[in-house]
Amino acid sequence: MQKLLIILGLLALAAGLFWPWLARIPFGRLPGDVHIHRDGSDFFFPITTGLLVSVVLSLLIWLFRR
């Protein structure tokens, strides 16, 4: 558990340091993400982004458990 928390902390630190470059990646604006603009409201549901994040995290967890 300690290793996992340290790794997650380092990943969060790296994401914070590299945020200006990471913000340019079209994450959250992938094909399949639902974004609806209507009068006075805005709805966003990142289906494809959520699936992609889920697959990547599942692979990383699987690799760390080996």
Rank of each mutant, 00 (worst) to 15 (best):
M1F: 01
M1N: 05
Q2W: 01
K3G: 07
K3M: 12
K3Q: 08
L4C: 05
L4W: 04
L5M: 03
I6V: 12
I6Q: 02
I6Y: 04
I7W: 11
L8E: 04
L8D: 02
G9Y: 03
G9M: 10
G9R: 02
A12L: 13
A14R: 01
A15S: 05
G16A: 08
L17P: 01
L17F: 09
F18V: 04
W19C: 07
W19F: 14
P20T: 06
P20W: 12
W21V: 08
W21N: 02
L22Q: 10
L22F: 14
L22P: 04
A23C: 13
A23N: 15
A23W: 14
I25Y: 07
P26R: 06
F27R: 00
G28L: 02
R29A: 10
L30W: 08
P31L: 13
P31H: 11
D33G: 05
D33I: 09
V34E: 13
I36V: 15
I36D: 05
I36T: 08
H37P: 02
H37K: 10
R38L: 13
R38D: 08
D39Q: 14
G40K: 04
G40P: 01
S41H: 11
S41Q: 13
D42I: 01
D42L: 07
D42Q: 07
D42S: 07
D42T: 04
F43S: 12
F44M: 12
F44I: 11
F44C: 06
F45W: 13
F45T: 01
I47T: 01
I47P: 00
I47K: 04
G50S: 10
G50K: 02
L51K: 07
L51Q: 06
L52Y: 02
V53G: 05
V55G: 00
V55D: 00
V55M: 01
V55H: 00
V55T: 00
V56A: 14
V56I: 15
L57E: 06
S58F: 15
S58N: 11
S58R: 08
S58L: 15
L59P: 03
L60W: 09
L60S: 08
I61E: 06
W62S: 06
W62L: 14
F64L: 14
F64M: 11
F64H: 07
R65S: 13
R65Y: 08
R66S: 03
